[in-house]
């Protein structure tokens, strides 16, 4: 079933089966690639911060570029109050980015193409943001559902819409990343299959597409990590600075 484009998303156990209280927590290929992504981040950051040069080298510059990029993103969208959450957003961005990028390697596994992974991340963000909102503003945080300057007649309707949109945040956040990753990788695989099935004569066109799509997918991998992080910042902004 090598031509099945969904085959690449299969999760299988590596090593012994681990069963804790009836729940299967075995180490899988998904866990392996999470570990690879995390280790890559750690190695990259370790090498980048090993030498503290006044004039940075390439690696150090890259790490500082990421740092400034995310610091700017946070201060632009959520203001100075969001500074304590910088390490989390930084880790989140790096993790999602590396998972997406490692997934672009042939024969690798894309951790973020699984809805459960993105959903857990999104749910964690959603719950934390809601918690922070209530912690900072108490019950006034519920004002987020009642926009100011809306006619009284429309208020019940708007409030319902606001509540639905607020509750759909984790779903939209997780599905966006998951669907983008899955669709992109499926498409790459399909075109890869075309190259083989059309052979030496007809395979050139899908091969061209494949190459172009790989470039596009790398862009998407970066973009989705960025979108994931910036949406987290925007949600955080709502919780920290109550605008409504």
């Amino acid at each position: 079933m090598a031509t099945n484009p969904m085959h690449q998303f299969n999760v299988y156990r590596i090593g012994p089966e681990v069963n804790i209280a009836g729940v299967d927590l075995s180490f899988t290929n998904s866990s392996l690639f999470m570990l690879i992504s995390a280790l890559t981040i750690c190695i990259f950051l370790f090498l980048a911060t090993k030498e503290k040069k006044l004039i940075p080298g390439k690696l150090q510059l890259t790490a500082e570029l990421f740092y400034n990029f995310i610091a700017k993103m946070i201060s632009d969208t959520a203001g100075s109050k969001a500074k304590p959450y910088f390490p989390f957003i930084f880790s989140l961005f790096m993790f999602v980015l590396l998972c997406n990028m490692v997934g672009m390697l042939p024969y690798s596994f894309t951790v973020t193409s699984h809805i459960i992974v993105t959903l857990i991340l999104a749910l964690f963000i959603f719950i934390s943001v809601t918690f922070i909102g209530f912690l900072k503003h108490g019950f006034k945080y519920l004002k987020i559902f009642v926009p100011s300057g809306v006619p009284v007649l429309l208020l019940p309707l708007i409030t319902v819409i606001e509540i639905i949109s607020y509750l759909s945040r984790p779903v939209s956040l997780s599905v966006r990343l998951f669907a983008n990753m899955m669709a992109g990788h499926t498409m790459l695989k399909v075109f890869g299959g075309f190259v083989i099935s059309l052979g030496l004569i007809g395979g050139w066109l899908p091969l061209t597409f494949s190459v172009a799509l790989t470039g596009l997918e790398i862009l998407v991998a970066f973009l989705q990590a960025y979108v994931f992080a910036i949406l987290t910042c925007i949600y955080l902004n709502d919780a920290l600075n109550l605008h409504h």
Partner: peptide, 18 residues
């Protein structure tokens, strides 16, 4: 089948990374 495993390893690895 592996949702729990993925969730567990994600939380573990991401927490350590964080």
């Amino acid at each position: 089948t592996y949702w729990a495993s993925q969730g567990f390893w994600l939380i573990l690895i991401f927490s350590i990374l964080y």
